[in-house]
Simulated assay, not measured.
Amino acid sequence: MEIFAPYARATLTLLASTGLVFGLLALVVKRNRIVEAVKLSRREFMTNLGLALINAIILAPLFVFPGNAISGALGVNETLAGLWDGVWKPVTLLLAILLLDLVVYWRHRLEHHPLLWPIHATHHADTTLQWMSTLRKHPLSKLLSVCVDMLLVLYLGVPAWAVGAALLLRSWWAFFIHCDVPWTLGIFGNVLISPAAHRLHHIRDEALMGSNYGNTVTLWDKVFGTYVDPAPYLDCETGIAEGTRGVAGELMRPFEKRYWKKTSDETEAPA
């Protein structure tokens, strides 16, 4: 049981701190509607909590091995790693944020491809989007992110302090953009992914769902043509056609024949 203890402490600390911050935010924003909002989101919140505990505590020790194996096989580019000493620290941090978000953008975008959608659909199933929706991930989707997301910064030898700071910012920003607030962030929303922009990514409309893949910045969505202004879609309906489920249902979702039949049909269809 000792192997799970560090993961349990880290997870419970994260849940307690984010719960306090975003719980207070919900209370301030919703005020007299908070009780109704809690009732509406209670079942999905518990599903998200269950998946978070499975991924971050029970399966976390297993995720370490493939993640380390892949990054170890890729190695570090020693020539590029040596260049970071001469870079101004604020620039180093900014580049770490942008590089992490670049990989997250493409990993996330590929998860919307029919081949990977069955493991990503769980994340889109919430009909009451809230901060804990961030942690609503199927273990296979979580494993993919563990194996892929840090490869570029590790290969480039980005300093550990910058990677750590960028990961912390990315984590908290992910909780923020899943909050049920119709905020576009004004002029800052041109640079940063806002809660409204990410809610649009979770929209029930599957065509518009293919937009705003970034986690922290809008740069890569704008560069690759997938950014959509969220202003016309504030408070849009979220979820997927297959509906939301409990923990067991979400764990089994990717293995249903209808998902793979649909995937096979779409990938074999002529252009």
Rank of each mutant, 00 (worst) to 15 (best):
P6M: 10
G50S: 14
F176E: 09
Y155Q: 09
K39C: 12
P66R: 05
L15S: 05
L94M: 01
L168K: 12
H108W: 04
H124A: 00
A56T: 04
D229C: 01
F63K: 08
V91L: 13
P139H: 06
P118C: 12
Y105M: 08
V163D: 08
A269G: 02
A26D: 15
I58P: 04
L169V: 08
L140I: 13
E237P: 01
L51W: 11
M46G: 04
V64K: 13
L14D: 11
D126Q: 07
Y227A: 12
N68M: 15
H120A: 06
H198I: 03
I34E: 08
A231G: 06
I177M: 10
H120G: 08
F4W: 09
N68K: 15
E250W: 00
V228W: 03
L27C: 11
G189M: 05
L74F: 14
Y227D: 08
E256S: 01
N190Y: 15
I70C: 05
R253E: 10
V228S: 01
V76H: 09
S171T: 15
A241R: 11
V29T: 10
A197T: 09
A60E: 13
F255M: 07
L15Y: 04
M1D: 01
H112C: 00
L151I: 10
P254R: 06
G19V: 12
R245V: 04
D229K: 03
E111C: 04
L168H: 11
V35D: 12
C236V: 15
H178Q: 13
G210I: 06
H198N: 01
D180Y: 08
I97P: 04
T244K: 10
C179I: 06
E266T: 12
L74M: 14
F176C: 11
L94D: 00
H112Y: 00
T92K: 03
H202C: 13
G82Q: 08
E242M: 11
K30Q: 15
I58A: 13
R43A: 09
L200G: 02
R245D: 01
P139K: 04
R199W: 07
Y233R: 00
F224S: 13
T47Q: 01
P159N: 04
I203W: 02
K89L: 15
L93T: 02
G210Q: 14
L169D: 01
E78Y: 14
K222F: 02
P159E: 03
